[in-house]
Every structure is written in C-alpha cells, then in structure tokens.
Simulated scan of single mutants.
Amino acid sequence: MDLSERQKMAAGDWYCCVDDELEALRVVARRALHEHNTMDPDRRGSMGPALAALLGSVGQHARIEAPFHCAYGFNISLGERTFLNAGCTILDTAQVRIGSRTLLGPNVQIYCAEHHKDAAQRLKGLEIARPVTIGNDVWVGGAAIILAGVTIGDGAIVGAGSVVTRDVPAHATVVGNPARPARGS
C-alpha cells in the first residue's frame, strides 16, 4: 500500500509538499489564522478560537499575539503560560513542542521543513520534515530562527537574531549565526 504524502510527512520521510490533501489542510490553517490575526484583541483573548481548536494542544494561559503564521497548526503543542510574541512563524510540517513558561520574542521563526538538496527534486516539491522541541522556561529572543531537528533544553536562552542549527543544552545561552555558546555562560 502506498503512503499518502501526509503519511510520509508524518513519518519523517521525503514527501511532495505540492499535494491536494496537504493544501486542503493548509487552507484550514489559513482560515484559523485569518480569524486570529484580524479579530478584535478584546474578543480574541489569548488566541482566536479557531486557532486554539486547530493546535495540537494548548496549555492553560498560553498566548499567541497577532500576527501569527503556521503551516498546519495541528503539529504544534504549547505548554502552560507559553507566550509567542507578534510576528512568530512556525512551519510545522513536523511536531513542534514548546514547553511551559517559554517565551518567544517578536518575529521568531521555527522551520521543520528541509527542501531537497538536488535542484530537480526541489522542483518536484520534495522536502523532509524534522521535529523541533523547545523545553520549559526557555527564552528565545526576537527574530531568532530555529531550524529543523533542533532541541533546545530547559532554561536555555537564545539571543535575538540567532540562527539555531543544532541542539542547545539545558541552561545554556547561545548567540549568533550559527548560534554558539555565549562567552561567560
């Protein structure tokens, strides 16, 4: 039996992102995001109802400021009191777990998808999805980018503008592009 592109994506195999089923799921996400991003803040509260329903799980008092963007939504899990500031983007082609009391600054980007290195395969829409895990009590500074397959340990700090290409140990502070341990930490 052949696997669907969605099943391949979920399994961490190469899949074609140009697929009717995946596009239909992205349309559902775009509708929820539109509601969240355009709803009066007094009515929206911590996040729009359609977005809250779309996400994989949402801990108590988790908050997402508008505007926000994600690819699918259902792969995102937020811990309790997690905060995503304005402009965050999560391309959740794989699981994205963000722990409790974790803070993401404005315009933080999380990318789970990696496109094929071969140009002909990229042209066909081939990509692979790898999960991102961010622990509890983490602070990710504004405009940081977290790449596919990265795990950030509890209590870590990612400096603003950093590009995180590999795992960050618990309680470490990393800065730069690529992100490296900060001096004195």
Results as ranks from 00 to 15, higher is better:
residue 54 L to D: 02
residue 121 Q to W: 07
residue 30 R to G: 01
residue 79 G to C: 12
residue 174 V to W: 04
residue 33 L to D: 04
residue 138 V to Y: 09
residue 180 R to L: 11
residue 165 T to M: 09
residue 73 G to A: 04
residue 118 D to I: 04
residue 141 G to Y: 10
residue 42 D to I: 14
residue 49 P to Q: 04
residue 148 A to R: 07
residue 143 A to P: 13
residue 94 A to L: 13
residue 132 V to F: 08
residue 171 H to A: 10
residue 91 L to A: 05
residue 171 H to W: 13
residue 163 V to S: 04
residue 83 F to R: 08
residue 113 A to N: 07
residue 115 H to D: 02
residue 110 I to A: 01
residue 137 D to F: 15
residue 56 G to Q: 00
residue 66 A to V: 12
residue 86 A to W: 11
residue 138 V to L: 03
residue 7 Q to R: 04
residue 144 A to H: 01
residue 100 S to I: 07
residue 101 R to I: 15
residue 30 R to Q: 14
residue 85 N to D: 05
residue 78 L to H: 12
residue 36 H to C: 06
residue 39 M to L: 12
residue 65 E to F: 13
residue 13 D to Y: 09
residue 9 M to S: 02
residue 174 V to E: 02
residue 74 F to R: 12
residue 177 N to Q: 10
residue 45 G to Q: 10
residue 104 L to N: 04
residue 59 G to N: 03
residue 88 C to G: 13
residue 50 A to I: 14
residue 103 L to F: 15
residue 139 W to Y: 11
residue 162 S to G: 02
residue 152 I to Y: 05
residue 146 I to L: 11
residue 8 K to F: 00
residue 113 A to R: 01
residue 86 A to K: 08
residue 131 P to D: 04
residue 117 K to S: 14
residue 185 S to T: 10
residue 82 T to L: 14
residue 152 I to F: 09
residue 149 G to D: 00
residue 5 E to R: 03
residue 148 A to N: 06
residue 170 A to K: 05
residue 182 A to E: 11
residue 127 E to V: 01
residue 132 V to D: 01
residue 46 S to Y: 13
residue 72 Y to P: 03
residue 119 A to M: 12
residue 185 S to M: 09
residue 139 W to Q: 05
residue 16 C to N: 08
residue 3 L to C: 12
residue 48 G to T: 11
residue 133 T to M: 07
residue 10 A to Y: 13
residue 96 V to W: 01
residue 62 A to L: 09
residue 157 I to K: 07
residue 109 Q to D: 05
residue 47 M to Y: 09
residue 82 T to M: 06
residue 110 I to G: 08
residue 97 R to P: 10
residue 56 G to V: 00
residue 64 I to Y: 09
residue 18 V to P: 09
residue 82 T to F: 08
residue 157 I to V: 05
residue 143 A to T: 13
residue 161 G to M: 01
residue 167 D to M: 02
residue 77 S to P: 15
residue 15 Y to Q: 04
residue 152 I to S: 12
residue 73 G to W: 06
residue 98 I to N: 01
residue 2 D to Y: 11
residue 47 M to W: 15
residue 26 R to I: 12
residue 72 Y to D: 07
residue 184 G to I: 15
residue 159 G to S: 12
residue 145 I to P: 05
residue 106 P to A: 14
residue 67 P to A: 05
residue 129 A to Q: 02
residue 56 G to A: 00
residue 67 P to R: 10
residue 74 F to Y: 11
residue 176 G to F: 06
residue 122 R to P: 00
residue 184 G to R: 04
residue 40 D to F: 10
residue 116 H to G: 00
residue 139 W to K: 12
residue 32 A to T: 07
residue 129 A to P: 02
residue 173 T to L: 12
residue 104 L to E: 02
residue 38 T to L: 10
residue 123 L to M: 14
residue 135 G to C: 03
residue 52 A to H: 15
residue 1 M to F: 14
residue 119 A to D: 13
residue 173 T to C: 10
residue 14 W to H: 10
residue 179 A to G: 06
residue 94 A to N: 08
residue 42 D to V: 12
residue 70 C to K: 07
residue 11 A to V: 08
residue 57 S to D: 03
residue 59 G to K: 00
residue 58 V to N: 01
residue 76 I to W: 10
residue 159 G to K: 05
residue 8 K to V: 00
residue 148 A to C: 15
residue 104 L to Q: 01
residue 127 E to F: 00
residue 178 P to Q: 06
residue 84 L to F: 11
residue 36 H to Y: 03
residue 127 E to W: 00
residue 181 P to M: 09
residue 172 A to P: 06
residue 58 V to S: 04
residue 92 D to P: 02
residue 52 A to K: 11
residue 7 Q to C: 05
residue 138 V to H: 02
